[in-house]
């Protein structure tokens, strides 16, 4: 997809969806739209009905006060992909689960819960998936500390 097509698509999606706002530029070649946390589920449902039938990726990025949740949606019919982002405050980390829309979220949300400690409201089976059940903490948070973790000395 060329940047122009991408921009047009972004325009089209955001035009009839007042909840969405284009968040980031296209400089790295991906269309990114942001949405308020409370409206994530409704927006995702709209996008799914608009043809985004695949949920490719769910992940999060730790940005100190907030977590940025990143969803990558993909449409075969439009042959396009967009990133959907929402911000989750660190001390109140929850977000609606998208399992009802795409079962693909089942394991990926469990993974984000496991490694970041973000709760997915409405997830049918929110348990740790990669780490043992008795593991304490969420290792992909930037402030995670663990005596077992030996920091690599700075060679560079």
């Amino acid at each position: 997809m060329t940047p122009d097509e991408m921009a047009a698509l972004l325009e089209r999606i955001t035009a009839h969806n007042p909840r969405l706002h284009p968040l980031f530029s296209l400089e790295f070649g991906d269309a990114v739209v942001g949405v308020e946390r409370a409206e994530l589920f409704a927006t995702a449902a709209d996008l799914r009905d608009a043809g985004f039938d695949r949920l490719g990726m769910v992940t999060a990025v730790d940005r100190d006060e907030v977590f940025v949740l990143v969803y990558r949606l993909h449409s075969r019919s439009l042959s396009a992909a967009i990133f959907l982002k929402t911000l989750v405050p660190r001390d109140d980390a929850w977000v609606a689960s998208l399992v009802e829309l795409w079962p693909a979220a089942l394991w990926q949300e469990r993974e984000v819960f496991d490694l970041f400690g973000i709760h997915f409201e409405g997830h049918p089976d929110l348990r740790r998936i990669l780490l043992p059940d008795d593991f304490v903490g969420h290792p992909l948070r930037k402030d995670y500390d663990d005596p077992r973790l030996i920091r690599r000395p700075d060679y560079i």
């Binding site: 490719g56 990726m57 992940t59 990025v61 730790d62 990143v70 990558r72 394991w107 993974e111 992909l140």
Partner: peptide
């Protein structure tokens, strides 16, 4: 399947975050 890598840079010499979208993970589900 489709193997994706999501990279976030904060302008330093190290990635700020790397996520691997793993096809085997999604298929095994």
């Amino acid at each position: 399947g489709s193997l994706g890598v999501y990279l976030v840079s904060d302008g330093s010499v190290r990635p700020y975050r790397m996520h691997v979208r793993s096809p085997a993970f999604c298929n095994l589900a």
